[in-house]
Every structure is written in structure tokens, then in C-alpha cells.
């Protein structure tokens, strides 16, 4: 079984988040809690359903990851892009994220 993490988008701003070991939704995949056996995956799924029902997050999914040199990496490119952001610089002339970064909730 591939290692798994729980991901979703935050309801209020839609930003991609991952469930961490403390049960919080974190904006970094690297902070995610990794489920390595079936019981842990079941727990992730239950947590995801509850968080969706509680209107904290939407589009909740369990996704496959691997750990390479201590860094979590989703197996699917779609999930890698969700974790890392667009693989491109934004529009020509765009000043960079720092000026307009979305603050952590």
C-alpha cells in the first residue's frame, strides 16, 4: 500500500490544505500526517468526512505519496502541482507572491 495523506481545500478561501498530525489543516504538504497502514487510512477518511460535514473544508481526498530523503512527494502530478503551486511564474510583470501572499488561516 502506498503511503497516504489527507488533502482538501479550505472552505473560506479555497486554498489547498493537508491534515497534520495535530489534526489541523496545514497549507504545507510537508506538514501532513502520513498514513502507512489501513487503520490509519480509515482514520484519515473519517476525519475528512467529519471536516467536510463541519463545513471546514471541501473537495476532501486521500492521496498517494512517497517519502524521498525526508520530503513528501505525491505520486500524481496533479497532486504535486496542488502541493507546490503552479509550475510556472505568473503573468509577465507579476511582482511575486510576497506582496499579495494569502495569510495562513
Amino acid at each position: 500500500m502506498a503511503d497516504k495523506v489527507l488533502t482538501a481545500n479550505r472552505l473560506s478561501d479555497g486554498i489547498s490544505v493537508w491534515l497534520d498530525a495535530a489534526g489541523n489543516w496545514n497549507e504545507s504538504l510537508q506538514a501532513a500526517f502520513v498514513a502507512r497502514h489501513k487503520e490509519a487510512v480509515d482514520a484519515l477518511e473519517a476525519t475528512g468526512k467529519q471536516a467536510f460535514a463541519d463545513n471546514k473544508v471541501v473537495d476532501v481526498n486521500v492521496v498517494d505519496v512517497e517519502e524521498v530523503d525526508g520530503v513528501l512527494r505525491p505520486l500524481r502530478m496533479r497532486e504535486r502541482i496542488r502541493a507546490d503551486g503552479p509550475s510556472i511564474a505568473y503573468a509577465a510583470g507579476y511582482a511575486g507572491l510576497t506582496a499579495t501572499a494569502v495569510p495562513a488561516a
Binding site: 481545500n9 478561501d13 479555497g14 486554498i15 489547498s16 471541501v58 473537495d59 496533479r78 502541482i81 496542488r82 503551486g85 503552479p86 494569502v102
Partner: peptide, 16 residues
């Protein structure tokens, strides 16, 4: 969801 879509709001990979 159908209400937000009627107002042009989608949920994409990173955000709305």
C-alpha cells in the same frame, strides 16, 4: 455548489 456556479465561482486546484 450549484449556487456558486451560477455566479461564476468554481473550485480549482489551488483556490476558487
Amino acid at each position: 455548489k450549484p449556487l456558486r456556479l451560477m455566479n461564476g465561482v468554481y473550485l480549482q486546484l489551488h483556490a476558487y
